[in-house]
């Protein structure tokens, strides 16, 4: 493995083990995409092949068929314990929100009911700083208030790998082990470690998905990259942003901020 990837891997494993040593109970969001699957691989490395907390898919029943099929295959191949947690229907969302943002909000509400049920103190999330301007401002251990909201104006100090590991009753921590990775890092690591990914990332008929989300609000981008080598080559030169195919990010200037401040991943 290239030494810079080894370094990223070691940092992520350190974060995962810190969370396991100081936060309980834990769960991990596994959206079945490339990032959270790489994160799952890092968890198995950290615990020598084991996954000592449940994996959760916040299920809107709107994931693409290939995503569900990939989930079922990996669950079987890796002998995983996966909780399929249904999200509340769109009708129950704030109807003032623009449509795609409203659809995305279902995951936030699903997460809230999950936290209430499982009483989780820590949730692993596979977000990265380079995905989006708001995620770039995240902490590795990010506290959320009772209703799941993110107080981005008063984030805790975090340095020298010292993380906020305790929160008041009813609150929880979002733990972000791959925050410092970039999209191309994930692909290089996926290739190096031979981690399986969903076929939707590879181009068919001149289009591929760079980021996977619900089928009603996610669209493929133009691409001819049909394997990981070609994806890496594409990313070395592209100027299209990773989340270009995610409608909810840009409906209005602050739509993603509104989603995130209310608890979106």
């Amino acid at each position: 493995m290239e030494s810079y990837l080894k370094d990223l891997e070691s940092k992520s494993i350190y974060i995962i083990r810190e969370a396991y040593a100081s936060v309980e109970p834990l769960a991990m969001l596994w959206s079945i995409g490339k990032d959270s699957t790489a994160m799952l691989w890092l968890v198995r490395k950290a615990f020598f092949g084991r996954v000592p907390f449940p994996l959760v898919l916040l299920d809107t029943e709107q994931e693409m068929d290939e995503v569900y099929a990939f989930r079922d295959k990996l669950t079987k191949d890796w002998d995983l314990e996966v909780i399929n947690h249904p999200c509340p229907p769109e009708e129950e969302m704030d109807q003032d929100l623009p449509p795609a943002t409203r659809a995305a909000m279902r995951k936030t509400e699903g997460l809230k009911t999950l936290l209430a049920e499982k009483k989780c103190k820590g949730i692993f999330c596979g977000i990265r700083r380079d995905e989006q301007g708001l995620r770039a401002k995240e902490r590795v251990f990010s506290p959320r208030s009772l209703d799941g909201s993110w107080d981005f104006k008063d984030q805790p100090a975090e340095f020298w790998d010292q993380y906020k590991t305790t929160v008041p009753e009813g609150c929880h921590l979002r733990i972000h082990p791959i925050l410092a990775w970039s999209e191309i890092d994930i692909w290089r690591y996926t290739q190096d470690q031979n981690i399986p990914v969903c076929d939707l990332y590879f181009a068919r008929d001149g289009k591929r998905y760079r980021s996977l989300g619900e089928k009603n609000i996610t669209f493929p981008v133009d691409s001819t990259a049909s394997n990981i080598d070609e994806i890496i080559a594409e990313l070395e030169t592209t100027k299209t942003s990773e989340r270009a195919g995610r409608a909810m990010d840009k409906e209005t200037e602050d739509s993603f901020e509104r989603l995130r401040s209310q608890g979106y991943m």
Partner: peptide
């Protein structure tokens, strides 16, 4: 680093 209860207060 120093913590006061839950908060990092100095380093």
């Amino acid at each position: 680093v120093l913590y006061d209860k839950d908060s990092l207060v100095g380093g």
